[in-house]
Structures are given as structure tokens and as C-alpha cells.
Nucleic acid binder design. Sequence first.
DNA 1: CCAAACTTGGAGTGTATACTCAAATTGTGT
DNA 2: ACACAATTTGAGTATACACTCCAAGTTTGG
Lengths: 192, 192
Amino acid sequence: MARYQVGIQTEAKIIEATRALLAEGGMEAATLKAICDRAEVRSGSFYNLFDSKEDVIIHVVRESIDAVDPDPDHAGTDTVNDLVSAYIRFFEEEPQLAKVYVMAALTGDSPTNGARRRFLRHHLRRVERFADAMARADQALDAEKSEIQAELLLGALDGLAFRWALDSDFDFATYAELASDKLVQVPARSSD
Amino acid sequence: MARYQVGIQTEAKIIEATRALLAEGGMEAATLKAICDRAEVRSGSFYNLFDSKEDVIIHVVRESIDAVDPDPDHAGTDTVNDLVSAYIRFFEEEPQLAKVYVMAALTGDSPTNGARRRFLRHHLRRVERFADAMARADQALDAEKSEIQAELLLGALDGLAFRWALDSDFDFATYAELASDKLVQVPARSSD
DNA sequence: CCAAACTTGGAGTGTATACTCAAATTGTGT
DNA sequence: ACACAATTTGAGTATACACTCCAAGTTTGG
């Protein structure tokens, strides 16, 4: 038999409650109790639908990242500028979620840490997209060089985002654009 | 009356146990029980010497950072290169401690989060030292410009270090030097 | 309208955590 | 050797957490 409507709705309520809690107070606010209270659901229902708390958190974080993707269909039409902007947008719109994302990669020490592996895979995909966009904009750039450049730029963006997490007065967007200008051979912005 | 020798030794044992645990397994390994067991001390003794677990962890992290300071007396003789090398050394020698340092800045949401405020202060001091070293190397650089450049470089270093925490195969040192070359007006390295 | 499959409530389990406190013991200066 | 402060002990407190279980209820297709 197929899934029941009521179950699908409950799942949606749980996801939305988790999203709201993470966005408001980060990882610490998203306890199982808080999620269930907010979703108006008992823990038994939660575990009927999800295998663990981690599951729903991963789901929420992934959705948020996808929401700002400049080229969700992967048509290969995004520029470095688009990608940098999308990155900035994610951090500015969902600072708490961004922190959750970063924390997940840092916590845990086991080599089988699922969150870290997922994070790394996502990072590598992102590097590839940045590198592709760089290569499209500058024919002189070979694959290896554009990948190095992409790692450098993403590294800088991650670091500046972290800096901004420390102190929300930090002008993340301006620094991110500056980094992009300095680190990308052909200026990424057709600006000024 | 003054402190007893035995108390001072106990304090040292606790600090060393905490340092070892953090270096081996990060934040998660450094539970109160683990610290006390390793130091061969009961929890009452711990709380006779420290106000909280956080206290001793902060102490340990601070010590580790100071240990790689290229200019501990602040004589103003360190070059950008020295500072970058010290940064690389901290992350390569104490990866787990570096993660603890980063996590502390990200956890907690209250505006009165002590760890985050401390982290920010430390970061700003570091920016100043980088900026000073940059200004010393290049007279044409005014205070504002060198500070911006320092924030950019430190941002990139933080991000690359994070990248390396994700995947220890990442060649952090090489990328860090590349970032330094690209982001500092007068090449920081008198190389090649 | 039935029965199978799905969903739910919610008390309960197990575990781990940081931290406390009063009494016992030990170190130190005199 | 004495007084007394510093230190240690270790059982105990309070709390929080993710997760389980299963009987009772609900939805659905036929």
C-alpha cells in the first residue's frame, strides 16, 4: 500500500519545524523535543517517518542550499559571479543554517563520519562548478589551473563567511567580491 | 595562606590531560570524566581549581596558539611569511585543537557568548599583526588598505584550513602560500 | 464494510553530561 | 607538634538527550 496523506503532512510539519528551529537558534535549538513540540507531533511519529534526528537536519540543510542554486538544472550557464552571489546569499539569508552546515563537517572524529563525507562531496561538486565557470570565461585556463583557482576562491569565501559568523558587522559581501577579483585571473565581475 | 605545591601540580595534571584529550579526539573526547580519569583526580578536585570545564579548555587552546607565535614578545619583527607559516604550523601540528578553536566560535547563539567574543578579539589582534607586517614590507600601503588585505588573507587561510579539516589529503600548506602570493600586493615570499 | 497497512500517542528506557557538597585528609608556616 | 587553610574525595544531584515500544486509532483500496 502507498503512503497515507496524513503521514506525508506530518513529515512536512516535522521538516518545517526543524527548518524554523535551525534558522532561529541553530543546532542547539533543534532538539528532538523542540522539533516535536513545534510540529505538534509525538516522538513516536517522528521515528515512524525518520530514522534519526540527523536525517531530518541533513534534509533541511540540503534543501536550503539547493534553494539558492543559480543553475539548478546544471545547464552550465552559471558564471563565477553567479556562483559567488549564490554563496553570499546562502550565508546572508540563512546564517544559522550555514553554521549548522559548517559544524557538521567539523564535529565527530571517526573516519566514517557521514556528515563530513557528505560535506566533502558537496564541496568537490562546488569546486567543479566554479572551475567550469572559470574555464568558460577564460579559454586560456586549463583544467588543473581552474581547479586550483576554484579551491582558492571557495576557501576564501568559506573563511570570510566564517569571519562573518563571528561578527555580523563584518561586510561579508564586499570582502567576498574583493576576494573574487583578486583570486580569479579574468575578473569575475564585469563591474565598475 | 599561599597555594600548596600539590594543588599546583594537580592543576598541571588536569591541563595536560585536557590538552592530550583535545589533541587526540577533539571536543567530544574531552568530557569531565575523561579529563579526571586521565589526570587521576576526582571531579571535586577539578572544581576546586577551575570554575568550569570551559575554563580549562580555553586555557589549553590559548596555550597551543601561543606556542607557535613567531614573535611572542611582540617586538614587531615578524614578516607576513612568518605569520602565515605559524598559522600553517598550528593547523598541521594540532588539527584537533584547531577544530576546537573553530567550533567554539560557531557554537552557542547568545550574544553574550564568551567563546565567540574571545575568538573575535583574538582574530582582530591577528589581523592587526598581519596588517602591520604588510605595512612594514610595503611603505605604499596605508593603514586601511593593509587591514583589508590582512582580513582577506586571514579569511582565505581560515577557509583553506577548514577545507583541510574536511580532508587531510588536501595540500593546505601549498594552497596557503598560493593565497598569500595572490592576496598580498608585494609577494610575501621572496621566492621563485 | 472489512482488513491490512499505516500512523499516532506518550510513557518509558538508557545513557551521558556537568557540576556540588560536606566530611576527611594533607601540606605548610610557625 | 600544632593550628588551620588548602586540597581531595566520591557519592550524589539535576538535567538533558536521543530513541523505543506497542497498544490504540486512522486511512485506504477493494
